[in-house]
Structure formats: C-alpha cells, structure tokens
Amino acid sequence: MNPLILRTSVRIHLYLLTLFSFYLLIRGHNEPGGGFIAGLLTASAMVLQALAFDARYASSLVPVREQTLIGLGLLLAVGTGVASMLFGRPFLDHVFHHTFLPFLGEVELASAVVFDIGVYLVVVGVAKWTILTVATGRAGQSGPGS
C-alpha cells in the first residue's frame, strides 16, 4: 500500500502545523496557546509524518537530538528562574516590558515567554524520543547526519 494522498497532503501539513504551533507558542501569553499546547502540536505534526512515512524519518525532521532538546528546555526554564534571583527577586519571578518595534507595532517582551519556550522544547523532545523509541522498538539515535 502506498498512501500517496496521505503522503502528499502530510508534507504540506507539516509546514502548516509547525508554523501554527510557533504561532500558538508566541501568542500563548495573551490568547489560547502556550508552550505545552504548541509542543504537543509540533509533536502531532511529527506523529502525522510517522504515520505517513516512518518514525525515523519523522524524528529526523527535528534535527536536534532529543536529549539535547529536553536538556535545553529544562535549562531555559530553570535559567529564567535563576535569572530573576540574580536581580534579587524570588525564584521564577517574571518581568515583562512593552516596547515598540517597527512593522510589528507595540510588542510585549516577557521573560515568561522564555520559560514557555523551555516548556515547548521539553515537550517536543519527549514526544520525539517516545515516538522514536516506541515505534522502532529500539534505542535509536537520530540527529544531524542520520
């Protein structure tokens, strides 16, 4: 069986879903979305690829090792927490600031978004790792070059 229609449409979905997940991630602070949802959406984009092609290909679309993703995510999350301590504030105290950028208008810069990006990375890493391990049934290492 060669699911041609599925494969063709899934290629397009990949970009749409990923883009949409970034959108959800960035806007999460003010509207429905956020790191967790966005991470899951990226993961489901990966799952879709795994369904249409195979898990190894799907996880190779995220060209970063899953352990690195998880570690980096946790580091970002903890880092924002520690960073607020460096300014003499309690752990995980967030700051936000409204600023004006050309073309984009008034933009809010919040340290909470950095934390959310950490959450996003962890979720993507966990999803990638789990899908790859469960689908291939072995400790596959994927990453750049594989």
Binding site: H29, N30, E31, P32, F96, A112, F115, D116
Partner: peptide, 16 residues
C-alpha cells in the same frame, strides 16, 4: 503576570 491568557499566566508565572 503581563498576560491576558489566565491559564497560561498561571502555568508560567503564578504556578511556574
């Protein structure tokens, strides 16, 4: 929290 999505602000800030 600087965000209007309460669920998200709870997740990342109040209950970070």
């Amino acid at each position: 929290g600087g965000g209007s999505n309460i669920v998200n602000v709870i997740l990342v800030d109040f209950r970070g």
